[in-house]
């Protein structure tokens, strides 16, 4: 039993704390503001491939507090516990393709679209910024 626990701790330390937290982000990165509403996820998002920071905030949706990015049923990235007034960010490196945004509990838009394409005609929601400030 003890040996098992020692092993578990070793695994935890490696997994939890030896994390390459945001190691060497590329200088050019996109930042997307994601607002959670009672409806759920934002309207379809279009971005370019590469590094993207999702700044997720909640403007007063009591029923939605989580934002996930999925592809083919797999969670690519997520943030949880975004209560009204709170904001949290996460950064992903996304390749071109179709993704799904998932906001559990949303009334009408529990799932939304996220398109990553090299040549986006009008990246309305996209802003290019310096390295994200968390």
């Amino acid at each position: 039993m003890r040996r098992l626990l020692v092993l578990v701790v070793a695994v935890l330390v490696v997994l939890g704390f030896a994390v390459p937290a945001g190691a060497a982000r590329p200088a050019k990165s996109q930042t997307i503001a994601v607002k959670l509403t009672p409806d759920g996820c934002p309207k379809p998002i279009k971005i370019k491939p590469g590094s993207v920071t999702f700044k997720v905030s909640n403007d007063g949706a009591d029923n939605v507090s989580e934002f996930e990015v999925l592809q083919g049923g797999k969670i690519v990235g997520e943030v949880e516990n975004i209560a009204p007034g709170l904001q949290r960010s996460f950064t992903l490196k996304l390749k071109a393709g179709e993704y799904v945004t998932y906001c559990p509990g949303g009334d009408t838009r529990e799932k939304g679209e996220l398109t990553v394409a090299a040549a986006v005609a009008k990246p309305a929601t996209t802003t290019t910024t310096a390295p994200p400030s968390g």
């Binding site: 578990v8 695994v11 935890l12 997994l15 939890g16 994390v19 937290a21 997520e78 996460f90 950064t91």
Partner: peptide, 20 residues
């Protein structure tokens, strides 16, 4: 440090500890 919580590793930790 303006760092993000590494969510994936956090969930991995929760899974292992949960199973234990």
């Amino acid at each position: 440090a303006s760092e993000q919580l590494p969510q994936r590793q956090q969930e991995q930790l929760e899974t292992i500890v949960g199973l234990v």
